[in-house]
Nucleic acid binder design. Structure first.
Lengths: 128, 128
DNA sequence: CGGTATCCTTATCGATACTG
DNA sequence: CAGTATCGATAAGGATACCG
């Protein structure tokens, strides 16, 4: 606070906001799942597809491309037949998972409270 | 559920995943902005609208309803003319912002690296 | 195997007119 | 002031055929 820079939260409302720029990317349906999967080690395209389960090839492809583009993951192609492509986390990707894990933990610890709040809200509307 | 159970990340792939259920809600375009704004204290509808700037009335209304429904914020109606409605954070909402702030800080600290990675990716595709 | 291109359906969102 | 209802544009997403 007292150091020169403003706190990060002070400019989340600015129009090209760097924080929103970053968070919007990983806030999508699939990025977190892919990252979690890769945390378990190197994975190939179809391994990821099977592990995540309900993701389409297109979305997996896009998500991987985005993550690679942002430097979260590394894509390695082996000149073999049949072709082999491996994905794994970069240091950046790994470092991202640190604060992310706290948020996941929070969600885990509070989802019951949240569900209860939703039910209560619904009940109030119905009963009122 | 958390006691003695597997780590939260172990069931992010399950179909009705509580973590995704929670994170999908606050991962939208506006929830975080509204929460950040309310962190500054009690706000009224049009105050939020002005502070966030580029949000439509409809989206603000929906976002507020979702956040209220999930127990992140409290909506207080005063029986006055003209009508006055105030929004503020609940304890749950406040507690959510703790891990969220770490993620925002991470995004703030790493957005340059990410932008550089994006540029490099683009350059590689163009130059290759 | 590891994707991309295409088609089509559905969800999202902004603008705005209207209500209490 | 504080929203809700309706409409239309657009983007996201799934299914799948096809390519290297």
């Amino acid at each position: 606070m007292s150091d020169g820079a403003a706190s990060p939260s002070s400019y989340v409302f600015e129009q090209p906001c760097p924080i929103r720029n970053v968070l919007d990317r990983i806030g999508d349906q699939w990025s977190l799942l892919v990252l979690q999967s890769l945390e378990g080690g190197t994975r190939r395209f179809n391994e990821l597809s099977r592990e995540i389960g309900d993701i389409s090839k297109q979305m997996l492809s896009r998500t991987l491309k985005h993550l690679e583009q942002d430097g979260f993951i590394r894509r390695t192609v082996y000149a073999e037949v049949p072709p082999r492509v491996e994905y794994n986390l970069t240091g950046l990707g790994r470092s991202f998972l640190v604060p992310m894990r706290d948020l996941v933990t929070w969600a885990d610890e509070n989802h019951r409270t949240i569900c209860a709040a939703r039910d209560e809200y619904t009940a109030r509307r119905a009963g009122a």
